[in-house]
Amino acid sequence: MKRNFFYALFSLGVCLTLGNSASAQQVDAKLPWSVRITESEMIRWPESWQLDFQPKLKWDYCHGLELQAMLDVYDTYGDQKIADYAIAYADTMIHDDGSITAYKLSEQSLDRVNSGKMLFRIYEQTKNEKYKKALDLLYSQFAVQPRNADGGFWHKKIYPNQMWLDGLYMGAPFYAEYAFRNTRPNDYADVINQFITSARHTYDPKNGLYRHACDVSRTERWADPVTGQSKHSWGRAMGWYAMALVDALDFIPKHEAGRDSVLAILNNVAVQVKRLQDPKTGGWYQVLDKSGEKGNYLESSCSAMFVYSMFKAVRMGYIDKSYLDVALKGYKGFLENFIQVDKNGLVTITRACAVAGLGGKVYRSGDYEYYINETIRDNDPKAVGPFIMACLEFERLQK
């Protein structure tokens, strides 16, 4: 309840601060959805460091998620103000020596790696060496990231022995792209092992889903005493995993040993995504293994992630083309059920879970009641970024 109060209070302050400037600016309804959402976010948050409702500078995964999507929009439609908006964040956060404001290597948190992905393109475009130094700094984290005996990365140093599906998206695509761009072929086996190991630890044979996380030491209160798994399959955790699979596969060579195992995992994810798609709305539930049950709700971030992942996986030939129907139904349903447009054309994405985790100082039990009672908010980057990418996939189809 206290967390909900502070979210509401902060959101009210943001609305009062930005309300006049946002309402004065228009978004053209004739533009593609990817551009309309991007421009809406740029109006809501005039400075890119303000994304994710931030009152101060922060280096974390949400900025990278959304700004990476915006760079995809720029690459597709070529509006320089979009590129400038993304580059402004990188320029604000990264110093000449490659150090990054609010990033501490000693934290060994995979969440801090994700925003590095956009730096590959920014370095290519600007040729500013500070971005290359920052990329090298983030890559160096993998050498010191704590691991379990089977090589699986801990999600964070403060979460010993734990693999979270979230962490696969935060680390693996960056790791694979860095290996590809810097000719480090030995790294591919490690990237592949992260996917295989996380699948082995989180797979639930009773329903074919992957649970949110696993504590291999089986000591956390949220962990099953036999399997170490958390209690449920959280929609966004599966969404992170799906996006990690399709994005990392871009950089893993086709001949690489173990790549077929990664594709097999992706194909199983696709099977489950299709099976659990809500027949009426095309969306997916906050807690996947309790889909349709009392208190559960259709959630926008996991829905956006699944739509994007299915579109891309079909386009790349990773899964059967019949899954395009799943993506199209999800895309149409998203527009109908999660999108609101105000009189000035500003686009709002509704009903996103603000945050969900396991353990921690304010202990999160990971039971059903926990997941369905976390804060729900509009325009969460974890819904906005993936849906921009889903829109771009749909728009590519139209061309």
Rank of each mutant, 00 (worst) to 15 (best):
W154Q: 13
W154Y: 15
M170K: 08
A134M: 07
P185L: 09
M170E: 11
A172Q: 09
A189Y: 02
I158D: 13
F180G: 07
T126F: 05
S140V: 06
Y159W: 12
T197R: 14
I158C: 12
G171K: 03
K157S: 15
G167C: 06
Q194E: 14
F180P: 01
F153Y: 14
K156Y: 01
N128S: 13
Y159L: 14
G151D: 00
N193Y: 06
I122N: 07
I158H: 12
T183M: 01
R147A: 06
N128K: 14
G152L: 04
L165P: 03
N128V: 06
K157M: 15
A189W: 01
G152Y: 05
Y123K: 12
F153M: 13
Y131S: 11
E177S: 11
M118Y: 01
R121H: 02
P160Q: 12
K133G: 02
A179C: 08
L135T: 00
F174Y: 13
A189I: 02
G116E: 05
A149H: 07
Q141V: 07
M118F: 00
Y123E: 11
F180S: 11
L119I: 00
A134Y: 07
D166Y: 11
G116D: 07
R184I: 08
T183P: 03
A143H: 06
E129K: 15
K156N: 08
N186C: 06
M170F: 10
P185E: 10
P185M: 07
M163L: 12
A149S: 14
R184W: 01
K156R: 14
F195L: 15
A189C: 01
Y178G: 11
I196F: 13
T197F: 02
T183N: 10
Q125D: 10
M118R: 04
V144N: 10
E129Y: 09
Q141M: 13
P185T: 10
K157P: 02
I192A: 15
T183S: 11
Q141P: 00
K133C: 04
W154F: 15
V191P: 05
R147K: 13
E177D: 06
Y175V: 03
M170T: 12
L137W: 03
I122W: 01
T197P: 03
E129M: 12
R184H: 05
R121S: 03
N182M: 09
R181K: 12
A179V: 05
L137S: 07
L165M: 01
K130Q: 15
N182K: 05
N186P: 02
F195G: 15
T183D: 10
T126Q: 10
A143W: 04
E129P: 13
F180C: 09
D136S: 10
Q141N: 08
N161W: 06
